[in-house]
Simulated scan of single mutants.
Amino acid sequence: METKQTLTLIAAIGSNNALGKDNDLIWHLPADLQHFKNSTSGHHIIMGRNTFESIGKALPNRTNVIITRNPNYSVENCIIVNTLEDAIKIAENDNNPFIVGGAQIYNQAINLVDKLIITEVHKDFEADTFFPKIDKSIWKEVNRQNFKADEKNKYDYSFVTYLKN
């Protein structure tokens, strides 16, 4: 019996849907970075070129797939494609590939994915890129873990999972 693939979008967003500013993260939450690593390890991670360049290197123990319109773009240890559809096709043998950003890719992917894993950072941030609004008529919250700020994580945050209705 064939296992159905679950295509998951994973993101960390501010209370005002802020994603980033100047091609960088606005906050530093070690717990979120660990959550991202634990969730995506062993899977394909699909991202736009800007997101890849903000990370700066291929992430270990994952198949890094970069979407770019530049036909000459090349990065060691990464798969380069030109469209989100091509990226998803590359990951067809992975039972749970992840869309990891940025804003353009999230906007293209949000209606294609089966699951959202969102870290809600409980603060409004000044940003130049934003996550698309999560339409509660399409998405049902199925899990939420709330955390208070501590010595390592400067802001209150929640790990929230949504499934398509």
Rank of each mutant, 00 (worst) to 15 (best):
L112I: 12
T8V: 13
E141A: 13
G14L: 06
L116V: 09
V121F: 06
A149K: 14
S74T: 14
N95V: 13
L19H: 07
D156G: 11
V100D: 05
T51C: 11
N70G: 06
I45F: 08
F159D: 03
V65M: 02
S54D: 09
V121W: 01
V160D: 11
V160L: 14
R49D: 06
G20D: 02
Q34P: 08
L112A: 08
M1G: 14
E141H: 10
N111Y: 13
F131V: 03
R69W: 01
D156F: 09
F130K: 00
L7S: 04
K89D: 09
R49A: 07
E120Q: 15
A31C: 14
N72V: 11
L163D: 03
F131Q: 03
V75R: 13
N93E: 15
G102H: 09
E151M: 05
H35Q: 06
S74P: 07
D94W: 00
T51R: 02
S54H: 04
G102R: 08
F147T: 07
H44F: 15
S39P: 06
T129I: 09
N72E: 12
G42Y: 12
A87I: 01
P30M: 08
I55N: 05
T51A: 05
R144Q: 14
G101D: 08
E85C: 00
K4R: 05
K57V: 07
V142Q: 09
K152G: 03
G101W: 01
I134W: 08
Y155A: 04
D94L: 01
N50K: 15
P132K: 06
K148H: 10
G42M: 10
N72A: 12
N72C: 07
Q34W: 10
Q5M: 15
S74E: 15
G102A: 11
A103W: 04
W139Q: 03
A127P: 13
N50Y: 13
D150H: 10
Q145N: 13
D114P: 02
R62M: 04
A87R: 04
V81K: 00
D124Y: 02
D24Y: 03
A12Q: 04
S41H: 11
A12H: 05
